[in-house]
Amino acid sequence: MATLTHYIVLSSILFGLGAIGFCTRRNALILFMSIELMLNAANLLLVAFSNFMADMAGQVMVLFIFAVAAAEVAVGLAILIVLFRHVQEVDITKFNVLKW
């Protein structure tokens, strides 16, 4: 039977993958997807704890994270499109106007 530890390890692996992707990739769209991966790892952890502690509040929290993720993607992608109009590029190393 899969225990809580299994889920914690799986969630940590997924979160780690997301973090590695966020730190190493340069394509802004893949950075977005890495953030989504990290959010999903957090969701999995919430649902796992909700199950093993027999408390449904964890599942409700996941729904709020869904809403926050949707808001984040909507605004983030809009910003990305505006940036693309100016720079014609999705490589984040090219976004260096504010760099000192």
Binding site: L10, I13, L14, L17, G18, I20, G21, T24, R25, N27, L29, I30, M33, S34, E36, L37, N40, V90
Partner: peptide, 23 residues
């Protein structure tokens, strides 16, 4: 885990999105 690995390792953004779908 495999799909997560593919998401961050894929060369183009579109296959990466498919990896994310699998996750």
């Amino acid at each position: 885990v495999l799909a997560g690995l593919f998401t961050i390792a894929a060369k183009d953004a579109l296959p990466s999105a498919m990896g994310l779908l699998t996750v």
